[in-house]
């Protein structure tokens, strides 16, 4: 799932909240082309944890192709697809007041 710079999706504020809540990543760092591992410094276990958190919101990332979700933009696409497929809109997550 690659994409050109022209069709970069907007980052859902609830996805941004999840990334902030779990890993303290500021919203300002969430460019669509930011790579989860290289730019956001998430290790593979953290990526799995993010998947688990998103699953609680009804968004399933298939585990058999990790290359499919490499960037923040890829994540956003998975969220968009899930919403389009009828997953109720994401409930808001509480933003942490720390960091």
């Amino acid at each position: 799932m690659t994409h050109g710079p022209g069709d970069a999706p907007a980052i859902d504020p609830r996805l941004a909240a999840a990334l902030h809540d779990l890993f303290g990543i500021p919203a300002a760092d969430l460019r669509p082309d930011a790579e989860l591992e290289r730019d956001l410094q998430l290790d593979s276990l953290s990526v799995v944890e993010l998947q688990v958190a998103l699953e609680r919101l009804g968004v399933r990332i298939e585990p058999d192709d990790p290359a499919q979700v490499r960037t923040v933009g890829d994540l956003q696409r998975v969220v968009d697809t899930a919403i389009a497929a009828g997953v109720p809109s994401l409930p808001p997550l509480t933003l942490s007041d720390e960091a």
Binding site: G24, E37, Q41, D43, A99
Partner: peptide, 16 residues
């Protein structure tokens, strides 16, 4: 931290 050690050592939360 990622550059000095590796991503596995990067703190997920940094509180001030």
């Amino acid at each position: 931290v990622g550059a000095a050690i590796g991503v596995h050592a990067v703190p997920r939360r940094i509180v001030r």
